[in-house]
Each structure stands twice: as structure tokens, then as C-alpha cells.
Design a protein around this nucleic acid. Sequence first.
DNA 1: CGACATATTGATCGACTTCAAGTGTAGTGG
DNA 2: CCACTACACTTGAAGTCGATCAATATGTCG
Lengths: 247, 247
Amino acid sequence: MATFENPQAAAALVARLSRYDDLSSQEIEVIENLTAVTRQFAKGEDIVVEGMSPLFSTLLLDGFAIRYNLVEDGRRQITAIHVNGDFVDLHCFLLKPMDHSVAALTPCRAALVPHVELRAISERHPHLTRLLWLSTLIDAAMHREWMVGMGRRSILAQLGHLICELYTRLKVVGRVNGLRFDFPVTQSEVSDALGLSLVQTNRTFRALREQHLVTMQGGVVTILDWDRLVEASEFNPLYLHLDKEPR
Amino acid sequence: MATFENPQAAAALVARLSRYDDLSSQEIEVIENLTAVTRQFAKGEDIVVEGMSPLFSTLLLDGFAIRYNLVEDGRRQITAIHVNGDFVDLHCFLLKPMDHSVAALTPCRAALVPHVELRAISERHPHLTRLLWLSTLIDAAMHREWMVGMGRRSILAQLGHLICELYTRLKVVGRVNGLRFDFPVTQSEVSDALGLSLVQTNRTFRALREQHLVTMQGGVVTILDWDRLVEASEFNPLYLHLDKEPR
DNA sequence: CGACATATTGATCGACTTCAAGTGTAGTGG
DNA sequence: CCACTACACTTGAAGTCGATCAATATGTCG
């Protein structure tokens, strides 16, 4: 086994973790020496399915991945959308059997990091471990924010909030272009994230468009008025914990 | 500072973590030597409010605590209900500023564990650290399951599922009595957890009662037919990760 | 072009919210 | 012991919102 075939993978993880706190040169070296293979996933392809106990976790290098659950009548609830640099299923390192599935929402490239390596980090590098732990805590914070949207916000605010969140997260990893970002997904997929019907999602997009807040066409989201969108969505990025702190 | 004033607090944490994996006698000793003070919280009292960066985390010893967010119009979304033995806000050890609030849903007794102690554990005891990490991962798994309920399950299934979850979690910590458990909360509070109106929650309780699945009166939940309730709620306890595994 | 997926819109229906009122039930203070 | 109050529960009625059904665009790809 070679170390990270793709130096970009190590760089992505270093970038991700040093967003939360400074890494020592030794810690960076540990990450660069991680063993991992890079894999491509087709749009819609499952990366991990519910019930499996994978021996690796997936670091997303390109594209969007989702976590989702199916209910008995076949409907789907998407519980997380992951972007470039996210450790999509880091949690399964400890959780063992997956209680949900992970799939490529768009074509994805990802590094598969073996759990034995993560375990070794957890044995020897407490600070790195805390930063990995932290990244799963931020995932949970996003879960909570989505719940607030589903339960107690208007549909417009819920969708607007999602767009604010994605924009903010993508901006941090340099994947926005002004107030635009690529998001090549269908409205039906957005519906499964919001817990709404397709028709209602379509109408909410129309409302965002008519209020000159956001447009989404051709797989590109364009924010027309960031301040008013934030206002209308009650978006407060605190829950993304973007500030660097000693951890 | 003395060690755990209340030996019950250490016992609760030992019990909690050894549910996930066996603890060594050395690890148990580490927990027993933790410094922590025990505090009582009145029903409705805030334990931590959004924006604070507490220096301790709260281990719940008695009663029910919630995590919640308020939205601008004053409505509330409860994102988690915690029971005896839960480390309610362990995540704020790394997250620093709280992105939500924690409150006592019923009168609570809790041990406040300083973050410096948690940090010391994370520096010296990797296995304990992984188990603490795991407990936050299970919180996130519950968040996801709630999202599925809010987005893609019927209201009846959503409420039934919550009752199944609480029953299962309380059973593990010995707080059930046959198919009964104490849950002294109002329907209005349940509404805030489900993201529904009070009226709808009341009607859903009625439906559960009429179908001879569950009753809730006088602060006591009684499950009338566990199998049919599980069936109707599509409850699968996998996401609670109750099995002991090497971690 | 044909086949297919996706987006859009209208129409209808049912579900959920809101408003409103009535019914316990427990607690308080005379 | 009995008003009186407060709170929670329960139910009805009306209205709104969102789901579903259905049909028509609009692409997009072979």
C-alpha cells in the first residue's frame, strides 16, 4: 500500500483540519503519510449502504455526496449534503454498522481512508483526534439546523437557509465564483433534503426567483442578494463553527 | 476540588461507556477520579444558552433535558431529548460557542464535568476518548432519525417512533417499569420536538390511544402493544448502536 | 427525431394550523 | 371546604398550506 496516491487528498484533509485549529508540522506529516486510495463514484452510485460495516471512511475530494435513509414506502430523506473536503462517513469509524446510506449526488472523487489508520491516529495524536471528532460534531450541528428548518421555519426560509449553508461551506473551500456555485442536482433531490414534495420545492424556487433572492438553473446556483437572502432565511453561520480556536 | 461528589455520577458514566465497549479497571479509575460538582436544575431552567462557551459539560443523572433552538417568531424546535446517563452537551467541549441552548425539561440533577478534565482524558486515554466521541456520534444518529420522521414519515409514525426511542433508551438505563415509563412533559413540549402544532400532537396522541398502541397520562407513557407500535412506527433500533463492539 | 429526464404550472384534495371554546385537574387562599 | 385561578388537555370549525394528480413545456442525449 502506498501513501495517499493523490497528494491532493492529504492537502484537502490538512486544509480541512487546519481550518479549526493550527496543525503542527508533525501532524501534517502524519496526514501526508496516511494510506488511502482514491476512487471515482458515478452520479447516484452508493458509496456505503445501510447495514454495512465498512473498513474505511470516505474523504470527499470532488463533487457532492449525500447521506440518506429510505422509509418503507420507498421515499427518501436526505440527512446531509457533503462538499469537497468533508469526511463524509468518518462517524462509521466508531459507529460500525451504518444506520444510513451514503451516495454520490453528483460524480464524486473520494479518498478511502482505512479505519486502522484512523485508529492509529486516535492512539497517538490526541490533537488530531480532537479535530476529527470536531468535524463530526459540526456535522451534528448541521443536522440540528436542518431540523429547525424542517420543523419551525417557513419553506422559503428552509430552502434559503440550505443555499446559504452550501454557499458558506463552499466558499471556505474555494468552490464559489462570486455569488455563484455549481450545484448540479435536480429539484427532486433537493425535495428529499427538505422533506417536501417536488412540486412544492419547485414553487419555492420560483418564490426565491420572484423575490430576486436566488436562481438555480443549469446546475448553477446564483445568489442575487446575499443580505436579503440571509435575512429571509434567518441564516446565522455560528453553527458551522468556522472560527479557528484552540481545540 | 473533590472528585465526583456523588459516586452515582461516576457510576452513571462508567455504565454509559461500558455499554459500548468494555472498560479496563484503569479507565474506570480515571472516571472515578474525575472532578465534578452535582447540581439541581428546576423544570424549565436553562442549563446552557446559545452563544455561551461553557467550561464544563453536563452529565445528566436524573430527569429529562432538551436541546433546542428558537426561531425569530419565538417558536421553538427541540432537537434532542436527553435521559439519565446522557452527556447532554459533551459536544461543546470542542465546539466552544454553543449554537443552541440546553434546558431542563423536567427537574434534573446533573454532574458538571470540567472541560480541562475531558481534555486530559483525550490526551492520555485514547480508548475512553473514542467512547466519548462515539456517544456524540450516537446523538447525531438520533438527529438523523428525527429528520427522517419529520420529513418522510407520517405524524403517527413520527410520534410512535419517538416513544419507541425513548422507551428503548430508558430501558437500557433501567428507567422503565414493564411497558411504562415516566415522562412528565406537556403535549406542547412534545409538539416542539416533533415540529407540529399542539392541536395536531393532541390528535396524534388520540390516534395512538384509539389504536390501542400508546397512552400518555399523568406524566406516564404506557405502551399497550409494543410489536404493533414498532410496526406502525417503522422503528429499527440499529441507529441507537446498542451492541457492544471493540471501539 | 424519438426517448427520456427534468422543470413548470394548474387543479383538486386532504392534512395541518390557527382560532376558539369547553373540560378537567391541581393548587391557592379565604 | 369551597371559590378561584392557572394550566393542560380536548374538541370543533374554518382556513391555509402542501401533497397529489395531471398535463404541458423544456431540455438533453443517443
